[in-house]
Design a protein around this nucleic acid. Structure first.
Lengths: 110, 110
DNA sequence: CAAGCATATGCGCATATGATCATATTATGA
DNA sequence: TCATAATATGATCATATGCGCATATGCTTG
């Protein structure tokens, strides 16, 4: 290992930032959320998210390029699924953090 | 609670996305990393990250607005510290996910 | 109050990113 | 092969974002 596990090298840091950035998009989160219960074809994702076909498709490319979702072709359809379950743990953690932030804010406003 | 804990409402989703987006910046991650061992004044962060004073200050505003860092004034200096320790758990998780993605990639390239 | 250090902010620039339209690609079936 | 459905992609536009310069603000000390 290059580092003991504490400090990130510049390269790793870029990758971590990239992954956070990919997750930092409402539409992409909506897509991932829709995929929580299992794989879905693009048209279902379009319907589930309320986005346009073009846009959903683009975001799926972004997610796939980042290794967050996997593609599976079945006939004319393409099914996408979450490739990295840690995504949901991340969301849980973030939610918890947000709750704490709000609480702290509320406290300081008192 | 509005939701059982599974699906996020639109509002919560925006907040989660926002938090991820704030973390999705290399310089901001560098700043947070520099703050891992405790609070630091801006000039130390400038030195530690290699950024300009202007830029570091700006990113600190962003981080503070998102509730990720806390401000403490001491004389002419302003000390910043990590306000939400879950940040580091997030980074750990992301690192793990990236390792897995890379491994999966390597496997599919074989 | 003046001078000086530490930090923040208005402004402008360059680039990145998300959204949409039209069109291309890929696969199925008559 | 032609028509059609499902998905992807090139081109374009509008906006967001990061960056740096200059300057403003806040605080301390003489």
């Amino acid at each position: 290992m290059a580092k003991g596990g504490k400090t990130l090298g510049e390269e790793a840091l870029q990758q971590v930032a990239r992954r956070f950035a990919v997750l930092g998009e409402p539409m992409r989160l909506r897509i991932l959320q829709s995929l929580m219960d299992g794989e879905l074809p693009v048209n279902s994702l379009v319907e589930a998210t309320g986005g346009t076909q073009t846009n959903v498709s683009r975001h799926l490319q972004t997610l796939a390029a980042a290794g967050l979702v996997a593609r599976r072709r079945e006939g004319a359809q393409v099914f996408y699924s979450v490739a990295d379950p840690s995504i949901f743990e991340l969301c849980e953690l973030v939610c918890g953090g947000i709750r704490k932030s709000l609480a702290a804010q509320a406290g300081s406003l008192r």
